[in-house]
């Protein structure tokens, strides 16, 4: 009787401080849901994981043709195809990750009604499965670089930090948007729309070299801008990289991430009663 209880359930809101503990407690489940999502997505498809490469590769080719060949957009001295594909690859972690996490809680509504686990496991799993897709297209990126004879220099030390930052940023934004989209269904449409705009204001298929200096700060308010530039810098060494802008983007990412985490935890408990 006097032993400490295994679990205590009170009206108190789930706290953010619980996150690291819960993350370790439910890491098996997280892994399993990621695995399930991948299995389900590519089962009964003939070419399976090849789809993962096909999508960014096709869009990179189209962009390369339109912007590189017809319009001749500047590409930091890189072959335009390499430039745009590297942007598409890292963007392919962010945008589909957010988009999939938006529907993640609703898609598994049956599950969270019947079994307890932290709700944010579901958006994280969606992003995890997107990360696997990202790794596959990363292989193609290295292949592409090799074909063009481009090898990374000392800046390659930023490669892992850039990816880690992209992953963490996508995760926290995904947790927040998943909660919002579950509570207010309109956000699903809004976010798809916002992501499309975001792709055009991010240095995915053009370089920020093209932006007039006095507007540069505005462009760097975009949390993804810094990540994309760091990613490219790590691979190619002499691409456009503006340190103050990078720092601004980092701060903006911290704010956006903090805000999204806050939203995720405000809604964490009440979602189940309003879903």
């Amino acid at each position: 009787m006097d032993k400490t209880p295994t679990s205590t359930i009170t009206p108190d809101r789930s706290s953010f401080a619980q996150l690291p503990h819960d993350f370790f407690k439910y890491k098996n489940l997280l892994g399993l849901i990621i695995w399930r999502d991948i299995q389900v997505r590519y089962r009964q498809t003939v070419i399976g994981l090849f789809w993962v490469i096909l999508q960014p590769a096709t869009s990179a080719l189209i962009f390369a043709f339109v912007f590189g060949h017809l319009v001749h957009v500047a590409s930091d001295g890189l072959p335009y195809l390499v430039f745009v594909y590297s942007g598409t690859v890292i963007w392919g972690l962010f945008a589909p990750g957010i988009e999939r996490s938006c529907g993640s809680i609703l898609n598994d509504e049956q599950l969270i009604r019947k079994v307890y686990f932290p709700r944010w496991i579901l958006p994280l799993a969606s992003i995890g499965s997107t990360f696997i897709d990202f790794l596959v297209s990363l292989v193609l990126l290295f292949l592409c670089n090799g074909i063009f004879g481009i090898w990374p220099g000392w800046t390659f030390i930023f490669f892992i930090p850039a990816i880690a930052w992209a992953l963490i940023l996508t995760s926290v934004l995904g947790m927040g948007t998943a909660a919002l989209c579950t509570k207010y269904r309109d956000f699903r449409f809004l976010i798809t729309f916002l992501l499309q705009i975001a792709q055009f204001v991010s240095p995915v298929f053009y370089t920020f070299n093209l932006i007039p200096y006095r507007f540069l700060w505005l462009a760097y308010l975009n949390p993804m801008a810094g990540v994309i530039e760091l990613f490219r810098l790590s691979l190619y060494g002499n691409t456009h990289f503006y340190l103050p802008g990078f720092c601004l983007s980092l701060v903006s990412a911290l704010f956006a991430g903090g805000f999204c985490l806050k939203i995720a935890f405000v809604f964490e408990d009440e979602l189940i009663d309003t879903i």
Partner: peptide
């Protein structure tokens, strides 16, 4: 089962659920 939270009060469990 911890699926939803109480509005008031406290539940305590000893053991795996």
């Amino acid at each position: 089962a911890q699926i939803t939270k109480p509005t008031q009060g406290r539940l305590r469990l000893w053991g795996r659920l």
